[in-house]
Amino acid sequence: MPAAEYVSPEGLRLDGRRPKELRQLRAELGVLSSATGSALFEMGNTKVLAAVFGPKPVEQRSQEDEKRAIIKCEYAMATFSTGERRRRGKADRRATEITMAIRNTLEQTILTELLPRSQIDIYVQVLQADGGTRCACINAACLAVAAAAIPMRDLVASCAAGYLESTPLLDLNYLEDSGGGPDVAVAIHPNYDNRVVLLQQDNRLAIETFEQVLELAVAGCRAVSGFMRERLQEHTQALAAAQDAGEQDDVGGGDGEDDDDDVMGVDDF
């Protein structure tokens, strides 16, 4: 058997994408009514749900920071998220690592100094995993934070790129991810000159190829960011329209407040 071909000589990947194409992106905001903000984010078959609670008073007094808000993060994979259904702990090494990555990224993104003595809880749940979960989690969390109207420096966007068969590939799916090649996950602030806020890499990569792969991943992030901004605006417009309609019909004052914040949240950047 010849080794699996990740990129055919005709330039198509196994799922029919070309090397520099993202998977189908989908996002939906405000999917959970109980959360302050929530978002469902899909990159192809990878599907992630994020819910944000807060800002709210810090639960444990000792952790309170008088200068900034503290961010708590919890990442979990649903038992049914992978082909093989198995219960996963929240504290396994992988989960801890991804939790850290998400928290780190969002701590750099949220304007925590504007919300002293408060706490923001972010829950991220992987519903379906098909490679690139880390990036999808960050994107989902970012959208959920935005939906919660928490002020941010920029809309952080994340995307991964890999290197298989001497070709840089954008947004690896599970099959490509298991190809054993290097995988570079990046998150950037696109409005701050593509400032890199997260960079993780599996496997070795020569420095010259690393630059190519990084460049591709950043380009991917920019595309993801464009898409997220679009979805966020659509969402806000929908809310605004609903609010207008609500004011006319005189229903639901409380929701209106939230929506106002949301609009401001977007306008902030």
Binding site: L14, D15, G16, R23, Q24, N45, G83, N173, L175
Partner: peptide, 12 residues
């Protein structure tokens, strides 16, 4: 597959 149901994307 054997027992697993593998879902793959297939772009046209």
């Amino acid at each position: 597959g054997k027992v697993l149901k593998v879902v793959r994307e297939h772009y046209l």
